[in-house]
Simulated assay, not measured.
Amino acid sequence: MLLGAATGVQAKGCIGFIPSGGGGIFWKGVNSGAIEAGKALGYDIYFRGPQEENQAGIQTAVLEMVSQRGCNALVIAPGSADMALAVEKLQRSGVPVIYVDRTLGAPSATGMVGTDNFKAGQLAGEAMAKRLKGKGAVLLFRMKQGWQTTDQRESGFAEAAARKGLQVIDGGYLGAVYGEAFVNASSALVSQKGRFQGVFAPNEATSMGVLAALRAQRLAGHVTYIGVDVTDQLLEGLQSGAVTGLVVQAAHAIGYQAVQMAVRAVDKKLPANRRVTVDAIYLTQENIDSYIP
Rank of each mutant, 00 (worst) to 15 (best):
D289G: 10
P19Q: 14
A77K: 14
L85A: 00
V100G: 03
A6S: 13
E36S: 05
E126R: 06
G194F: 15
S290A: 07
M112Y: 11
S32V: 05
S80D: 09
V95T: 07
Q197A: 07
D44W: 11
E53M: 10
T244R: 15
A129G: 03
A280F: 12
P107A: 06
L123E: 05
T206S: 10
M112G: 11
D232I: 06
K144G: 04
R92S: 11
R69L: 07
F196P: 11
M128T: 09
F118H: 15
G241Y: 01
L90I: 06
G245A: 04
S240G: 11
G198S: 00
L85W: 14
T277N: 01
V100D: 01
A61R: 13
Q10T: 15
G227L: 13
L189S: 01
S93W: 10
V228M: 15
R218F: 14
G8Y: 01
E126M: 12
F47V: 07
V66L: 08
A106E: 05
L132K: 04
P271V: 00
G171H: 14
Q167A: 08
A162P: 03
D101S: 09
T150R: 07
T206A: 12
A84Q: 08
D151K: 02
G209F: 05
F47G: 00
V97S: 03
A124H: 00
Q68I: 01
Q91R: 09
P271E: 10
A11G: 02
R163V: 00
A109Y: 12
P50Y: 07
G23Q: 00
R275D: 15
R131E: 10
